[in-house]
Simulated assay, not measured.
Amino acid sequence: MAAKDSVKKAEDKKSISKYFRGVKSEFKKVVWPTKKQVLNYTLIVIVACILFALLLAVFDKIVMFALKLIYG
């Protein structure tokens, strides 16, 4: 019984190390963006968020105006 447990632990250690070796090899394949690309993408996201917030605020004002007309 103890022999089976030790074999299983050894297999677990091998599978864990195999997993991390696979992760390491996959990270080597990743093409990381340049600093300029990260800056550009960040600015695009910030501008898009601001525009969406403004659009939502305008829509909210229109709905509130319509509701005031309807309900007084």
Rank of each mutant, 00 (worst) to 15 (best):
A2E: 14
I44Q: 01
V38R: 11
V7Y: 12
L55H: 02
M64S: 07
L51Q: 09
F65K: 08
L69H: 09
L39E: 07
A2T: 12
A10C: 08
N40G: 00
S15N: 14
D60L: 10
A48T: 09
L39R: 10
T42E: 06
S17F: 03
V30D: 01
Y41F: 06
S17G: 03
P33L: 09
K4S: 13
K35C: 02
A3D: 13
A57L: 08
A66K: 05
S25F: 03
K14F: 13
K28H: 07
A48K: 01
K24Y: 12
S25R: 12
I16T: 13
C49N: 14
E26S: 12
M64A: 04
V47R: 06
V31D: 10
E11N: 11
A3G: 09
V30W: 03
A3W: 04
V63Y: 04
F52Y: 06
P33Q: 06
A48E: 07
F27E: 11
Y19W: 10
R21I: 07
L69Q: 14
F27N: 11
V45N: 05
T42C: 07
V23F: 12
S25N: 13
V38T: 04
L54Y: 00
V23M: 14
V47Y: 05
A10V: 07
D5R: 15
S6M: 13
K4E: 15
S6D: 10
K14R: 11
A66G: 06
S6H: 06
V63P: 00
P33D: 02
T34I: 03
F20M: 11
D5Y: 07
Y71S: 08
F59P: 00
S17D: 12
R21C: 08
I50H: 03
K8V: 07
D5T: 10
G72T: 00
Y41M: 13
I70R: 05
S17Q: 10
K24M: 11
G22L: 03
F59D: 06
F59H: 03
K8G: 03
E26F: 08
F20Y: 15
L56I: 06
L39W: 04
S6L: 15
K68T: 00
M1T: 07
C49D: 09
Q37F: 01
I50F: 01
L54C: 05
G22P: 01
F65L: 07
F27C: 13
T42D: 05
K24T: 14
A10K: 09
T42Y: 13
V47F: 09
F20S: 01
V31L: 09
D12V: 04
